[in-house]
């Protein structure tokens, strides 16, 4: 099993200039790796820095210290020091992110929202839409909603649209940010199945999952983030 993702001594803190320059340490010396076909779940209480770690891997938060290394074929890219366009390219073809919240775009229909990442990876528009519809159906999004913009959907429907969007394309690395929160049992089962399928395809995954049952079903390894807690006095 080859290593897909390796975090080496990663540290992060926030400086709140609007609150007199208060420094809020988040994590330090984070170190773990994820192999292909493996799902690693970050554990620990709220505020331990799980979400920050995920966002650093996605390049959404800056990484103050250490390295976040991604293997792409024979190349290794350090996300912590990558140029914006390198990160955007990684997001197109290497790292996917399933977040809890959908950032809706006016006038873009649900099926288009879902198909977009697949089309960005080179699929034709019709192929993208077809795959999107299949996924939306699997996630029990009513067919009458597919051609509507998701801005007016219920919270659960929006979340499922976004899950479909996160799973549709092939990324060697997939980040799962509470994909099952507030889903009913049937849809939770679909997500679990989707994760299993990704594992079979060799996708390396890092997730945050508060749902105990789901976590036990899909996690190959649980990393307790409290071990990386920064010293509050630092």
């Amino acid at each position: 099993m080859s290593v897909r993702l390796y975090l080496n001594s990663v540290g992060k803190s926030f400086t709140m200039h609007l609150q007199g320059g208060t420094v809020i340490p988040v994590v330090e010396k984070v170190e773990f790796s994820v192999n292909e076909g493996e799902c690693v779940v970050l554990g620990g209480p709220s505020g331990a820095g799980k979400s920050s770690i995920l966002k650093m891997i996605y390049g959404n938060y800056r990484c103050d210290e250490g390295q976040i290394l991604v293997t792409i074929g024979n190349d290794i890219v350090n996300i912590a020091g990558a140029e914006p366009r390198q990160i955007l390219k990684l997001r197109d073809d290497t790292i996917g992110y399933v977040s809890q919240f959908l950032r809706t775009i006016p006038r873009v229909s649900a099926e288009e929202v879902v198909a977009e990442p697949l089309i960005a990876q080179g699929s034709s528009e019709s192929e993208g839409i077809e795959t999107a519809r299949a996924l939306l159906a699997r996630l029990n999004v009513p067919e009458r909603l597919w051609t509507l913009p998701p801005a007016t959907f219920s919270g659960g429907e929006q979340q499922r649209v976004n899950i479909a969007r996160g799973f549709i394309a092939h990324y060697p690395i997939l980040l799962l940010d509470e994909p099952t929160a507030s889903l009913d049992a049937a849809n939770r089962a679909v997500v679990v199945r989707l994760v299993e399928e990704k594992k079979e395809q060799g996708v390396a995954m890092v997730g945050i999952l508060h749902d105990q049952d789901v976590r036990e079903e899909i996690a190959d390894r649980i990393i307790d983030v409290t071990g990386f807690a920064a010293d509050a006095a630092a």
Binding site: F14, T15, G59, R62
Partner: peptide
């Protein structure tokens, strides 16, 4: 920097 990075994790 990257748009979402600057907006979600502003430094200055």
């Amino acid at each position: 920097g990257l748009t979402d990075q600057v907006l979600d994790d502003p430094r200055e």
